[in-house]
Structure formats: C-alpha cells, structure tokens
Design a binder for these strands. Structure first.
Lengths: 147, 147
DNA sequence: ACAAATAGTGCAACTTGGTTGCAAGTGAAA
DNA sequence: TTTCACTTGCAACCAAGTTGCACTATTTGT
C-alpha cells in the first residue's frame, strides 16, 4: 500500500472526503516532526497551487474531526500537527489528548511528544476546587538541531 | 501606604515612569485573580479614557520589563497577568518563570498558579537531546465558579 | 457507468487584534 | 524651571484568519 492509499484510508476513517488538497496537506504534516503553521504548509504545497482559504478550512476540518490538533504560539499563530499512532497517548479516555509540546527558543519550532499524563502533577493547595480535565505541558529550551 | 503609592513604587522598581495609565492598568491587573485580555482591561478602565494603542504599549512594556507576563489563548488573543509576590516561583534562577495556567473551558478565564516546577517532569526517552529551560503547564477543566 | 445530492474549493471582500509613524504632552533629574 | 527622554493619542496600516457565494469535485444509489 503506498502512502496515498494510506492517507486516503485515514481520511475516510475520519469521515472526510478524499481530495487532492487533503491528501497533500496530510502528507506534509505526516512528514514533519514539528507542528507547522499555515504559512509553512502553504509553502510546502506551493502557494499558487492551494488557495489560502482552502488550506485554512482543511486544517480546521482536520482539527474538528480529531485528526489533528492545534497549538497556539506565543506570537498568536496556530501550528498544526497530526495525532500519530506512534505518539501513544494515555489510554485513559479523559486525558486522551494530554500533550507535551517543546518550543525551541532558537528556531521556534514546536515538537509534540507523547507523555504519560499521570507523571504531570501540580502539587498545590490553592488549586482546590479546580476540576482538571486535560493537561498540556509546554517546555521551552533548545532543540537538538539548534544545540 | 495606599495602593497608589504601592503601585508607584512597584513601577519605579521596574524602571518605569509613573503615569496615570500605568497606575490604573496595574491596579486593574492586581485586583484580578485571572489573566486579562486587552479588551477586558480596556473596559475596566473605561474605553474612552484610554487609547487602545497606549494600552497595548503599556502592556507590552510591563511584559518587556518583567513586571507582567503574557499567555496566548487558544483563540489567538493575549492575556496579561502581573507576577505577584504571593505567587512564589521556584527560587531556581533558571526556572524562575515556570508557570501553571488553568483554563476554564466554561468561562474561558485563565488563572495563574504558583507551582513547584521540580514536580513537573516528563519521563520520556524521545526527549533525549532537548535542553529544557522553562516549563509551563496548562490545565483545562472547570473553575470553582463554573462548577 | 452515470446522475443527483452533498460536500469541498477558489475568489473577493471583510473582520479582528495588534503595530507603526509621528506630532504633541508629561515626568523627573539637574 | 528648564531640559530631554520617555509616554501618549491619533490615523493609517498590517497580517492572520473568516464569511459569502458561485463553481467544482467526490460520493452514493441505481
């Protein structure tokens, strides 16, 4: 099975029609180790080949259907990343989407990591009465490439 | 010492000239338990009384000088909160600004919490080679008010 | 294999949140 | 009280993302 077939199946599994743009977008995201912005994806796809609005809608659809997730960066942009099988999330339904994001202060790339959410604890009394449903840990520093 | 005097001193301690707008902005932020958006602050101040650009600049200045910090929300806005004394941060210089933010999924307010950063760990082999300088944990759920 | 129904695409115009440039006003050090 | 750098207010601007609408492509049923 080639990667296009694989991607088609993935799209269908999420009740999405298989279109050229979705396949290409999915492919770009799958190949990237880091979460990508609209602009970055658009560039990879060839900006003339894909309308910016269509790409925004494609990405939003991926997020809405639970195929991808979105991270807001410090400079008020969004980055998108596909949920990967190999990024084993907690099997606890509640915390299925717990995340660790690593933000490189040098190249500004954002890496997504699998994380055992039970290892994330906040030991503080002032949090009494707050019901925690989901956790995201965001780490800043330097990635191996920029080291 | 009244609160204005206190705020004046705080501003001076951060090498900022004491102006009406800074005092008022500081006051609004100090009174709030949650991080506030430009729009929220502006409303508290009386939108006619403070130019939006000036408020943006005031907030940016606070952040630049280390008096406040900024959290990017999911919907690409910024919220601002003063670093408080009573929010004891780790005394480890490196991780001085480690944070826990609680995002209420109902009222969308963001609460800042003190946190013992050493309690935040990500146990994962795939993070080899990543140098972590700062950590932020972001928790989603329901705050006591919306419970 | 084909047509109808449904969903996706492309374009232009728009909205929102935030920034820049510049002239005028103000705080604080001397 | 004068000076000078810093702050403020206004208008114009910018960039990211969205909406409305006509058109096109994918899917489903036959």
């Amino acid at each position: 099975m080639n990667s296009d077939d694989y991607h088609s199946e993935l799209l269908r599994a999420y009740n999405l029609k298989v279109t050229r743009i979705r396949l290409q977008t999915l492919d770009v995201l799958m190949r990237s180790r880091t979460a990508m912005s609209h602009a970055q994806i658009s560039q990879k796809l060839g900006p003339k080949d894909v309308d910016k609005v269509t790409l925004y809608r494609t990405l939003n659809t991926f997020v809405d259907k639970g195929l991808a997730h979105r991270v807001a960066t410090e400079d008020r942009n969004w980055l998108y990343a596909i949920y990967r099988n190999d990024q084993a999330h907690s099997h606890d339904q509640e915390h299925e989407h717990d995340h660790a994001h690593f933000v490189c202060d040098s190249c500004e790339k954002i890496y997504c990591f699998p994380v055992d959410s039970s290892a994330l604890t906040v030991n503080n009394e002032s949090m009494m009465g707050f019901e925690i449903k989901e956790k995201e840990i965001r780490l800043h520093g330097r990635c191996p490439v920029c080291h």
